[in-house]
Design a protein around this nucleic acid. Structure first.
Lengths: 218, 218
DNA sequence: GTCTATATATTGATAGAC
DNA sequence: GTCTATCAATATATAGAC
């Protein structure tokens, strides 16, 4: 849109920074993920980088957002126009998990930053809260579709299953960081297996505790 | 054992510090969990506290160890002599989770510290690695017993289920920190339900990826 | 054993020049 | 937009007195 010197370039530079940061973090991990290091990696001074993202927290949030966007396109949660796509949920999630095992630094960034931001006053608290909300909501919707299509047992509770799914993803990553021999994809596959072999009964008593969704997971 | 001035007192003081710290962290959370704050809370100077635990990391590890011991006794993973007890695993874990919801600060400490220590070089890395190993091992053993007793389907793979169980516990806590309305115990109950309604078939293909165990979980 | 004082290190943030 | 320089805020760790 806007040419003439400034606006467009600023956006481009932001993109460049984000992509580079994503790359560095993926390899070097969280400890190297200081504003200075990241800045230097893209040939900027600390101040230069902070010019684009007011604070470290905002920078990190943008990095994670960026990553989500990429993952969502790669693993088919959204189509080329960015609209939610109806894909094979188990397959997509498993692919995602397999991909995550290739970028340990990002897994670490996600784990650390999300646990730091769990503190209610943290600048990135809302980001994660909303992200979980959205992800659960999308996953639950996807589960419903699978049930309609007969690819997941109708007896499953979409909302609760969505919570469990993302809990599992996060938790697997933690254990994997301590023992890379743990095969996240394999474990996840077993989980789907457990679900599928569930006897197909109607609904049950307990009230669902939250909403549902289908974004990518860190 | 040893009387005469020093040794015994040192141990007692350590205990006192640990218990107090546990209490403070449970209420105040991780941000207040600086060596200084903890020291002051037990009427010591920062140096005074560090005299008992060489570093912050060691202190935190001891706090978590302490907590595990307490939890294991309360929730029956070990008997009064400290030997592994054969108890109702689903029940014990659910009780534990319910208890954790009462001590948000500890959940936070666990989440943050365990994600920090995930970095391979971290002083507490080995502690968590071993803890997960032990916990999985004990849980898997417990699952086997339940299967023998007919309280869990024989078709379940103990090793993989143990990984999934602890992943679920960790992950639920994360989501719960961002949205306390998420009922961890309820979610866990649903998970057990899913398992129990599993059609009771024999074993299957996939190789198990890790070992098993039955300690408490943060 | 416990304290005071201090060293040390890190890092995020700001002021202001170019 | 980008840099240099500098601040300021923590926090942990250590030295050494009492």
């Amino acid at each position: 849109m806007a040419r003439r010197g400034s606006y467009a370039k600023g956006i481009a530079k932001r993109e460049e920074i984000l992509n580079a940061a994503l790359d560095i973090v993926a390899r070097a991990g969280y400890s190297r993920a200081t504003v200075r290091e990241l800045a230097q990696a893209v040939g900027l001074s600390q101040t230069g980088l902070l010019h684009y993202f007011g604070s470290k927290e905002q920078l990190f949030v943008e990095i994670l957002r960026r990553r989500d966007e990429v993952d969502q396109h790669v693993f088919g949660a959204v189509d080329d126009e960015g609209r939610p796509a109806l894909t094979d949920l188990p397959g997509a999630v498993t692919s995602l998990v397999r991909h995550n095992a290739e970028v340990p630094g990002l897994v670490q960034l996600y784990a650390r930053f999300s646990s730091e931001a769990a503190e209610p006053g943290h600048p990135a608290h809302a980001y994660f809260r909303d992200r979980y909300e959205t992800a659960r909501s999308a996953a639950a919707a996807s589960i419903v579709e699978h049930q309609a299509a007969g690819t997941l047992p109708a007896g499953l509770d979409p909302d609760r299953l969505a919570v469990i799914l993302f809990a599992l993803l996060d938790g697997l990553q933690t254990q994997w960081m301590y023992n890379p021999e743990i095969d996240m994809a394999e474990q996840l596959g077993y989980f789907w297996e457990l679900l599928s072999s569930k006897t197909d009964e109607g609904d049950d008593s307990g009230p669902a505790s939250s909403s549902a969704g289908s974004a990518a997971e860190g």
